[in-house]
């Protein structure tokens, strides 16, 4: 799946596990955002990290994509440990195997949408220019932006920027895709279309998706499994309060925050 060098791969790591997180923590200064976060993501599943605003969802994602080393704990992605001494070498190997869509799309403002999607193809593949353009147009077509290929990021809406960001993340058909708030701020039809696209790509390409979101409809539509983070999981820090099938969590969880989240209820006054 990856062009892994022998120096960074974990010997005996199961191919069915795309991500393994053990006891991850993140501190900024004296403030602990979360601690003891442990979970695993199976290959080919859509895994959602959910929780209220400010609970550290995006921070967990930044750790998984290697932008932020965790303060404590271990993380392995596609069989490569991205914590500890092998971090830099592992990340170098992994860069082509993961695609990331940032919350705002993070498109390069000086390039058209087509050029944005073509950029990784140009950097990492031997495709000729017409091949790069054809592949990039297919990716833009997948997210419904074929007719916007020549537009600049400044000329498109926020929803279009997100979709273009997904197209760029998919440019190299990576086996692992991270999407940060893909449907936030989108209309229900576009949002449902994105959900459909994620499931289709999972089914057709066998790609693994890690999605950070708090859009309930989206979570229930796409997630095979999820974890829920909460700012008050521990007396002194945030952390993980639930893990599993979101539909089961909705119906069976007895944790007040999990129940409130899935039922769209306000927590009682004075609750953490």
């Amino acid at each position: 799946m990856t062009d892994a060098g022998p120096t960074t791969a974990i010997p005996g790591a199961p191919a069915t596990t795309a991500i393994q997180v053990t006891g991850a923590a993140q501190r900024f200064g004296r403030r602990t955002i979360y601690r003891d976060v442990s979970f695993s993501v199976a290959t080919g599943e859509v895994f959602v990290i959910l929780g209220g605003s400010g609970c550290g969802k995006s921070t967990v994602m930044r750790q998984l994509i290697g932008l932020l080393p965790p303060t404590a704990g271990e993380i392995a992605v596609l069989g490569h440990r991205i914590t500890g001494p092998a971090r830099v070498a592992s990340l170098r190997v992994l860069r082509r195997s993961i695609g990331v869509m940032f919350q705002s799309g993070a498109l390069f403002g000086s390039m058209t949408l087509l050029e944005n999607v073509m950029l990784p193809l140009e950097m990492f593949t031997p495709l000729p220019p017409e091949g790069r353009e054809a592949v990039a147009r297919v990716k833009l077509g997948l997210v419904g932006l074929a007719d916007a290929a020549g537009l600049m990021p400044a000329e498109i809406s926020g929803g279009m920027a997100k979709r273009a960001g997904i197209a760029r993340a998919m440019a190299l058909d990576p086996p692992l895709l991270f999407l940060d708030e893909p449907s936030a701020g989108l209309d229900p039809i576009t949002s449902a279309g994105l959900d459909r696209l994620i499931l289709d790509l999972r089914d057709d390409l066998g790609a693994t998706f890690v999605v950070v979101t708090h859009e309930l409809a989206s979570i229930l539509a796409i997630a095979d499994r999820c974890i829920m983070l909460d700012r008050a999981a521990w007396p002194d820090a945030g952390g993980m309060i639930a893990e599993g099938d979101p539909r089961k969590l909705r119906d069976e969880s007895t944790h007040p925050t999990v129940r409130a989240f899935f039922r769209r209820e306000a927590l009682p006054v004075g609750a953490p």
Binding site: A134, R137, V138, K139, L140, G141, L142, A146, D147, A149, G150, D200, D203, D204, L205
Partner: peptide, 21 residues
């Protein structure tokens, strides 16, 4: 497996005509 589905998507995407400049 799944190639026909992928090819259908690629065909559909390449059929979408971009706006003329």
């Amino acid at each position: 497996a799944q190639l026909e589905s992928l090819l259908d998507r690629a065909r559909a995407a390449s059929r979408q005509v971009p706006h003329a400049a």
